[in-house]
Structure formats: C-alpha cells, structure tokens
C-alpha cells in the first residue's frame, strides 16, 4: 500500500515524461528517483516505471513506424535478445538488495550523461555488409526531409549487436527504464545505422522489452494499479508535450540541461546506494 496522492504522482509523471521525451531517454530516469524520494521502495518504483515505458514507447513508435523511418526487421531481430535480457534483469532485481539497485541506477545515469556528447556518425551508411547481416536483410532507406534526399543504408555486425542488445535489455529489465541511450549507441556505433533509424528502431524495441520485464514484476505482485494509473497518464501526457517542445529547442540547450539533470540524479542515487545520504 502507498500513501502518495494520485495528484502528486500525476504531476511528477508529467515532468518525468516531459524530460524523458526531450532527452530521448524515457521517463524512468526521472520517475524512479522521484518515486523513491517520495517513499516508495525502489523495486515497486522500478515495476511501475517499466509499465509506463510501454506506454511512452508505444505512443512514440506508432508515429515513427507509420512514417517509415523505423527498420522493422532490425527491430524484430534485436527484440529476440532484448526480451531475454529484460526477463533476466527483472529476475535479478527481485533477488537483489535495494542498495545494489540504487548503485546500478546511479552508474547507468552517469553513463547516459556521457553518451549525450557522443556524436552519431553522419556519413557513410552503405557499409560493406558481413554475411550474417546480409542474410538477416538488415538494410533499407528512408526519405530525410531535412537533407531533402533518400538515405540508403546497410547494417553491419549484427552478430555483435544482437548479444550487446541482450545487455541493453538486461539493464532495462533490471532498472525499469527504456535504456534507449544504450540501444541507440549499439544501433548507431556498432551496427552503423543512421541516427534517425537508430532512434526510431530503438523506440520500437523498448516497448516489447519493457513488456518482458513487466511480466516478471506482474507475477511478483509489484504492479500497484493505484500508482500505475496516474503514472501512466502523467508520463503519456508529459511525453506528448515534450515531443512537440523538442522541435523548438536547440540540441545544445537540450544536452546541457540533461547533462545537469543526469549528473545530479546519478550522483544522488549513488550516494543513496552507498548510504551517504
């Protein structure tokens, strides 16, 4: 049972969804620390967060998929790895102590802060494909409105990307977050896909991965509908606004703001993990 008012949960979730959409990292990175600060234990916070991740991912993916930028085959190949990772990750969470989860969360946030400044490669997407990636049909094209041209690409190193996605799924299931930054990193840097394809395909994968993690938390009895309902509504509303605001802000402003947010929250979670605060 919980004592946090639904109104407060709704407002916090709007902020989390808003920041999550603007940063591209999902609402969990803000939602989980906020819920734990309000007195919810971290495992319940993780379980609630991962349900809300399904909502934001599905909402965003519905638009991206219809626009034709998402590569469905890349997504569906990699989902095989992420769902297994999420199930293992969620199972580990159930068996873990709270302090370990706080530390893991802090480390992932600080790592995410570093990835904000990794620049995606923006040229040369027609890689020489390895046999496995060719067999998996990991190629495609999309029309880039900003560049005014059709971008063609071929994915590579799928035999590396797949197992790495198990790790991304593990972190998603373990910590109840989308782990979008990590997934985009794998799609972009390892598999050589264009940034837009990486981001939108990652979004598609996140929903199914979160569902796999949720299945474990549901059976464990950690999904509290009284908390989940206002959180889902708030995160969806916040993400809806955040996605539209994103178009008005420059990348530099967004990145600076989120660097500060991630550093503060990451260090705060680490300190709580080590029982300094």
């Amino acid at each position: 049972m919980h004592l946090i008012s639904p109104e407060l949960l709704f407002v916090i979730s709007i902020v989390a969804g808003f920041i999550g959409a603007m940063s591209g990292m999902g609402g969990g990175v803000v939602l989980i620390p906020a819920l734990t600060l309000l007195g919810l234990d971290i495992k319940h916070a993780i379980a609630i967060s991962i349900v809300s991740v399904i909502a934001t991912s599905s909402g965003a993916a519905s638009a991206y998929v219809r626009d034709g930028v998402t590569n469905l085959k890349v997504g569906m190949f990699l989902e095989m790895f992420t769902i297994l990772g999420a199930i293992v990750g969620a199972t580990v969470t159930l068996a873990s102590g709270d302090q370990g989860l706080f530390i893991a969360f802090g480390v992932v946030l600080l790592f995410s802060a570093a990835t904000l400044f990794l620049r995606p490669h923006d040229t040369g997407y027609l890689h020489r494909q390895d046999g496995v990636s060719r067999w998996l049909e990991l190629h495609g094209s999309y029309y880039d409105h900003a560049a005014g041209e059709t971008i063609q690409y071929r994915g590579r190193l799928s035999y590396v990307g797949g197992p790495m996605m198990f790790g991304a799924g593990f972190i998603a299931g373990l910590l109840g977050i989308g782990a979008g930054a990590l997934k985009v990193l794998i799609l972009d840097l390892a598999m050589g896909l264009p940034a837009k394809v990486s981001t939108t395909t990652s979004n598609l994968i996140i929903g199914v991965t979160a569902l796999a993690g949720t299945s474990i938390y549901l059976v464990a009895g950690l999904i509290d509908p009284g908390i989940a309902a206002p959180v889902i509504l708030g995160v969806v509303a916040g993400a809806f606004v955040g996605t539209r605001m994103l178009k008005r802000l420059t990348n530099t402003h967004v990145r600076r703001f989120f660097l500060v947010v991630l550093l503060i929250v990451g260090i705060e979670m680490l300190l709580r993990g080590f029982k300094v605060i």
Partner: peptide, 14 residues
C-alpha cells in the same frame, strides 16, 4: 505514400 517513403527493400546499389 507519405513523404517518408518506405524502404527496407533490397540492398542499395542493387
């Protein structure tokens, strides 16, 4: 077909 033409067809240059 929308502006974002679809894709994932055959390898480029083929």
């Amino acid at each position: 077909m929308t502006g974002l033409q679809n894709k994932a067809t055959q390898p480029a240059n083929t």
